[in-house]
Nucleic acid binder design. Structure first.
Lengths: 258, 258
DNA sequence: CTTAACTCTGTACTATGTACGAAGTACAGG
DNA sequence: CCTGTACTTCGTACATAGTACAGAGTTAAG
């Protein structure tokens, strides 16, 4: 059992947000030399999130890691929400630039796989969403790079945007369910099999939950569960989805070419 | 600017979780008559979330709405995390059952549209994820219903699971970005246009952010933004994605039929 | 009637983000 | 060199969460 909720912060000042993301130095420094830089804070926060979850990123803990009082972090970052934004943009900087000579199919595949890997390296990225703040340099570059993959294949601008959103959305949802499952095993201390072992008899005792009422769900759910648990292929759903999506885009492209 | 984070609870006792979800009454009652039912709590929590966001669902507020002390809610629900699980399952109960005689394309379309509508009726569903607790009666029925749409069209069990995951994932990501944008406008008090108006001069002052460095992102981003803001079609990305995904599945299906 | 199970409540503890103000530091201008 | 100003750092404190705990009250079983 697990309820996972998303909280968000209100808006913020665009100017400050952008300056932070783009590393604008600001007016000349007068006071004492800062002990840290914004980048230090971001790196430490990412390390904490990598080692645990996004919840591990608290102002107090980040400060402690840095050997600084909690409140002094506010010198480098306006608040926790902005810190998360910075973390996202920083992580996007890890994405590789792929060969510009690839065909659109290969290019989108490379992008999807790079993002799949990124999500596995930084699972907290899946626990965080960015809305209007995709304005950091690396997020911007990421978007540019994605668009480059589908440029000149016969789609208009709005379609290009929708196409890359389709692919990146796919990676996000499939990576999320893959990692969610793994995390649940870690935090609950129960493997999927153990959990079901305990759950099964309880379910069996509930008339309304009889297998006959949900024949497909029972059969398919079990098959899918086994396939995913099998170390064989944790990425099955991702690859299946990607193949479908690319075929779907291909259908549109060939239609356009005629 | 906005950092949105997802926190989660640890595991939990499968027995209790399932009993709650399936409404098992438990052993005979001895003490005083309960003032409420679990369903009352769930309904109230959903009302609060509908009217605001998932953050509005606090134990204290739900209790206040019900005219009860905060702690007495723990009689009906083990904790906040489980309450969220119950809310999800309850909401899934609102999904309609579509005509069993539809072809798989129409059936998947109907399912996708119903879920799109559900997310717009209960935006908090997008702020919450369920992992292993998709074991409630309505979530189970939802899965069964989804599978029914793709049964007998030539896919094996694992493919069926992946296909419905693909469609439901699409709805989730597209609904999320659509609603995120809307919520941001609400909470920040700035429309997208206003925000960009303020952001533009700041960005312009940053050499690294020059439009020439991101030609596609600038052009396509603007085109897509305008298209989505136009009340014309907030669901464009959703429909585009759905069409591609269905075409992609169709390609696989016809391949199988030969 | 007694007892055990159950409900309900008040108090209190922990964790969190962050506002506020004081104290210390380093450079600009005189 | 001195002084004011901008800046960093920090301790304290407040508001908001979830929820542990213990006690008081309530009802049905024996």
């Amino acid at each position: 059992m697990s309820g996972v909720s998303t909280e968000d912060n209100g808006g913020g000042d665009p100017r400050r947000a952008i300056e932070l993301l783009w590393g604008v130095p600001g007016p000349p420094r007068r006071g004492p030399k800062p002990k840290l830089t914004t980048a230090d804070v971001v790196r430490t926060a990412i390390a904490l999130a990598d080692a645990d979850t996004i919840d591990a990123v608290t102002i107090r803990r980040v400060a402690e890691q840095l050997g600084v009082s909690p409140m002094s972090l506010y010198t480098y970052v306006p608040g926790r929400a902005e810190l998360l934004d910075l973390m996202i943009d920083h992580a996007h900087g890890e994405l590789p630039v792929s060969d510009p000579d690839l065909g659109w199919r290969e290019a989108l595949t490379a992008i999807a796989e790079a993002q799949w890997a990124l999500f596995h390296r930084h699972p907290w990225l899946l626990q965080v969403t960015t809305s209007r703040s995709a304005l950091g340099p690396h997020s911007f570059a990421k978007y540019e790079h994605e668009l480059r993959a589908v440029e000149g294949i016969g789609l208009d601008d709005v379609e290009m945007d929708a196409a890359v959103a389709l692919v990146t959305g796919l990676v996000r949802t499939t990576a999320r369910s893959s990692l969610d499952a793994a995390r649940l095993v870690r935090t609950s201390g129960l493997t999927d099999a153990q959990w079901w072992e305990r759950a099964a008899p309880v379910l069996a005792g509930i008339p309304a939950a009889a297998t006959e009422h949900y024949p497909l769900a029972s059969r398919v759910g079990q098959a899918a569960g086994e396939a995913h648990n099998a170390a064989e292929d944790p990425a099955y759903t991702f690859r299946f989805g990607l193949a479908r999506v690319l075929d779907g885009i291909e259908a549109l492209v060939s239609e356009r070419q005629q």
